[in-house]
Computed example of a mutant assay.
Amino acid sequence: MNHGQTAPEDRARPLSVVLAGGGTAGHISPMIAIADAVRRSRPDARITMVGTPSGMETRLVPAAGYALETIDRVPMPRRLSADLAKLPGRFSRAVRQAAEIIRAAEADVVVGVGGYVCTPMYAAARRLRVPIVIHEANARPGLANRVGRALGGSVAVAFASTPLGGADHVGMPMRREISQLDRAGRRAEARAALGADPQERLIVVTGGSSGAASINRAVAEFASSGRAAEAGVRLIHITGRGKEVLDPAGSPLSAPGYAQRDYVDGMETAYAAADLLVARSGAGTVSELAATGTPAVLVPLPHGNGEQALNAHDLVSAGGAILVPDDEFTADFLAQTVAPLARDEDRLAEMSRAALTSGVRDADEQMAARVIAAAEAGRGEGRSRA
């Protein structure tokens, strides 16, 4: 094949897109959103998703209607050990597995969103001269995506402040039920689904799908003391599955102005219902709050590398949310700051407008366009997949 020409058989077959990512919902959700957007643009596109056998992707990807291929999980040892000596062999094996998947799919492009699976996939794609497109969801870039950029990948980021040279800011790909949410239009329906009165000043608290013990403790103390009712607010507490808040007698906590549930099927319901939302500042949550214009109080995880505080930076700077350290999020803080804010309609309206100004609602479409362009350009280069 001559450079700059596309073989007739390449022109005839559908685009083949391989997407890699996993480990957490923060990686998997944008990967699925990108795949869905590619499918909307190119209904005949062949989509292959790749993860590891032990990640959440083994459940979430098939549930979204996509088949999943897996390669070995190759974590980077954090200290000198026998595992470090085994790393080169393990990594080489994972790269071979990745190359087999890319060849079998006749991939036109490899898309990575982060996680252990991505580094071998990037290495294999580079070896096979398949274009690499990367989406970095966090304000602090992960190792895999930094490697992918070094291997020549085209990079897009969810947050404008992410320090990844040469990256384009596109926002966070997300489900269209969230990105296109009409909060005002869905308010009555969402409140009915949560059992809340349309006229109540409603605070929704969530620690994410796995809950947040420190947030749950503060909310339980605030509610059990009767201060929610005294403050004139209603609080719906999404505790996380298996994280039910109990009273001293061991029964589910019940108090005036307070209700708990372990799960909400679709966070768009919480965003539409809430006057104010209290949450951790995972990248997905922060991006969804901005896209939907939901005023928020963000409580970053107190451990790790400080990533969650960085994720919140752009939204807080824009005025769409306030940030409170985990150890300062107490029952008193709820009474003195959160409850009054939930009753301040003018302030909430300002926060909503600020959030919408910083939010991006078409990141999935932007990423799909990048992926398709890279795939078509790669075909034109006439690379070898030997």
Rank of each mutant, 00 (worst) to 15 (best):
S54H: 14
E307V: 12
E268D: 14
P88T: 10
A82C: 04
S281D: 01
V109L: 08
T330V: 11
E230A: 15
A37C: 04
A373Y: 00
Q336N: 08
N2C: 03
D108K: 02
A158Q: 04
A369F: 04
G185P: 07
L253K: 08
A270C: 13
E244T: 15
N145T: 11
A321K: 05
L246F: 13
R129A: 15
V205T: 07
T269C: 00
R201D: 10
S384N: 13
Y122T: 08
V109W: 10
P62N: 11
S384H: 13
A259Q: 13
L341Q: 07
E189Q: 14
T357V: 03
P77A: 13
P75R: 01
G112P: 11
E230N: 10
P88N: 07
K86F: 10
V74L: 09
L301Q: 11
V371R: 08
G232F: 12
L323Y: 08
L60A: 06
M172W: 10
A33Q: 06
R379M: 09
A193L: 14
P340V: 09
P198R: 06
K86I: 01
V17M: 02
D10C: 05
P53H: 10
L15S: 03
D83M: 04
A184M: 14
I236Q: 00
G195A: 05
E200H: 14
G22R: 08
A188I: 07
A64W: 04
V38W: 01
L15F: 08
M351R: 02
T206W: 00
C118W: 00
V219K: 02
D362S: 13
R217H: 14
A369C: 01
D36I: 00
R59K: 12
R59A: 15
S209C: 10
A12H: 13
P43H: 11
T24C: 11
Q97E: 14
A67H: 12
I236W: 04
G382Q: 07
V264Y: 10
G293H: 05
L202F: 07
A184Y: 01
A156M: 08
L60W: 08
G207I: 06
T24R: 05
R40Q: 05
A375T: 05
A104S: 11
I372T: 09
Q5F: 07
L181S: 03
A7Q: 14
Q336G: 11
A196I: 08
H27E: 06
P252L: 03
L276G: 02
A355V: 06
S54N: 13
A283D: 11
R103K: 12
A218P: 02
A158E: 00
D332A: 15
I47M: 14
I322E: 08
A25F: 13
S179R: 09
H237W: 02
A82G: 15
T285E: 06
T52Q: 03
G23Q: 03
T330G: 04
D314A: 15
A273D: 03
K86M: 12
L334E: 00
